Simulated assay, not measured.
Amino acid sequence: MNYRSFKGTSVSEVGLGTWQLGSSEWGDVSEEEAFAILQAYVDNGGNFIDTADIYGMGVSERKIGKFLKQVESDRDIYVATKLGRREDDGYGWPQNFTYDVMREHVESSLENLGLDQLFLDQFHCIPTEQLKKGDVFDHFRKIQDEGLIRHWGVSVETAEEARICLEQEGLGSLQIIFNLFRQHLADDFFEQAAEKDVALIVRVPLASGLLTGKFDEDTTFSEDDHRNFNADGEAFNVGETFSGIEFNKGVELVEKIKQIMPEGEMPQLALRWILDHPQVTTVIPGATRKVHVESNTGASSLDPLSGDIHRRLRALYDSEIRPNIRGRY
C-alpha cells in the first residue's frame, strides 16, 4: 500500500467506503461480514475509512466504532464521516445547517464511533445555496476550534460546488465523483485543489460496480439496492448510481474501455487510472465482501497506465461517454 499526504497526515491512497456497511441501499451486510471487510482492509495496509451518519442511520458508524475497539494495528486508522442529510426526529433541511444541529450531529457520530475527535467531518452533498451563503463553513470552523473535529470538508456533486468550497479558508478536503465515466473533472479544479493543499477524496470510483466489468444486460439488483430503485435518479442524484450513465449503455461502454486497457483485473485498472492523477489523495471504493477489499487495495501496487492508454481513454470519454452522463455534475 502506498500513502499520500492529507494535510500532513499519511493516509492510504486506497481508502474504504462504507456505505454498504449501513445495510441500507446496498442490501444487508451482517456485522460479521462488516468486520471481515474492515479487517481485510487494515491487513492490506489501509488506514482511511469513510462513512456517514445516514448510512443505515448510524449503523455503519457503529459497526466501525465496534471494530476500532478490537482491531490491532501498527498504524493509526483515520475515520472520516459526513453530516447534513439526516431527517430523523425533526431534523432536515434547512435546520440541519444551524450550528446547534451540526454540533449535535458531530457529537452523535463521535458516540457511534467511540472517538473523542473526528479526523474529518464533511458536509454530505448539501444544497448549493447553503454553500454560497457560507454560514455552514463558519459553524464547522467553530466546531473545529472546540476540538471535536481535526479537519472539515465537503462532499460535492458538481464542479461548481467544488469551486465554491475551494474559496473557503480552512477547507481540508473535497469528496468528488471521479472515475472513467467522469474524467473531465481533472481539468476543472484539480490543480486549484493542489495549490491550496486541499485533499481530494474520490467516491463512486467503480460507478456502483459497473466499472468492474462484471455486469451484463441481464444483471439485476435487489429491491433495496440503490442500483435498482435509483437507477434513473428516482430517489436521489442519479450521479451517485452508475455515475449517471444508463445501465445498459454503461455495460456497452465498459466493453470499449476493456479493449483499451492492458491485461489485468478491470476493477484494479479502473482504480489505477484514478491513482495516476497525483492530485488525488485517496480513492474510497466500497465492498460487500472481503475479496472486494483484497482486489481494490491491490490497485496501489500496479504500475501506472501508459500515457497512450490515458489518451485513448480520454478520447473515448469525450466522444462517447460524456454525452451520456445524466444528472448534476
Rank of each mutant, 00 (worst) to 15 (best):
I37D: 00
S208Q: 08
V11P: 09
T241Y: 05
R322V: 04
T297F: 04
A270D: 09
E146P: 13
V204Q: 05
D43G: 02
R314N: 14
D308A: 11
Y3F: 15
S295C: 14
E169P: 14
E167P: 07
T282W: 14
D100C: 07
R4V: 06
F190W: 01
S300A: 15
R312C: 05
G92P: 13
E217K: 12
F97M: 12
K63N: 04
I149L: 09
D276V: 01
G172A: 10
F35E: 09
S173F: 11
S10W: 08
S295N: 12
L38F: 08
K66F: 07
D100R: 12
G45C: 05
F215L: 03
G56E: 03
S24Q: 11
G307P: 02
E107K: 04
S30H: 09
R326G: 11
H277G: 01
G92I: 08
P285Y: 01
E157W: 11
R163P: 00
G58A: 06
A34Y: 02
S73P: 05
K82M: 15
L313A: 02
K290M: 01
V283A: 10
K249W: 04
L83K: 14
F189P: 03
I126P: 13
Y329M: 07
K133L: 07
A36L: 05
F119S: 11
D224F: 03
F35S: 05
F137A: 02
N2M: 14
G286C: 14
A34M: 00
E191N: 06
L275D: 11
K82L: 15
G46T: 06
K133Q: 14
Q168K: 11
Y78Q: 09
P285C: 08
G27W: 08
D216W: 07
S10Q: 04
F181M: 06
L38A: 00
F178E: 00
F215C: 02
D116T: 11
E265A: 14
V11Q: 04
D116K: 15
L21V: 05
D88T: 03
D188Y: 01
R314M: 15
N112F: 11
H124P: 14
G298R: 10
G298V: 08
F215A: 01
Y329D: 10
Y41Q: 01
G264F: 10
D74S: 12
V136I: 15
R103T: 02
S108N: 09
F178Y: 10
K258T: 14
K290C: 08
M1H: 13
S301Y: 12
S12A: 15
G84Q: 14
G84S: 12
A235D: 01
S10H: 03
S243Y: 09
F6L: 12
N237Q: 07
S73G: 06
G45V: 15
D218L: 08
F229K: 07
S155G: 15
I143S: 01
F178D: 01
G239F: 08
E294G: 12
Y55K: 11
P262C: 10
I274M: 06
G286W: 12
G22Y: 09
N324P: 06
R75M: 07
V136C: 07
S306V: 04
T158R: 13
D100M: 05
E61R: 04
D145A: 13
L115E: 06
T297A: 11
T9I: 10
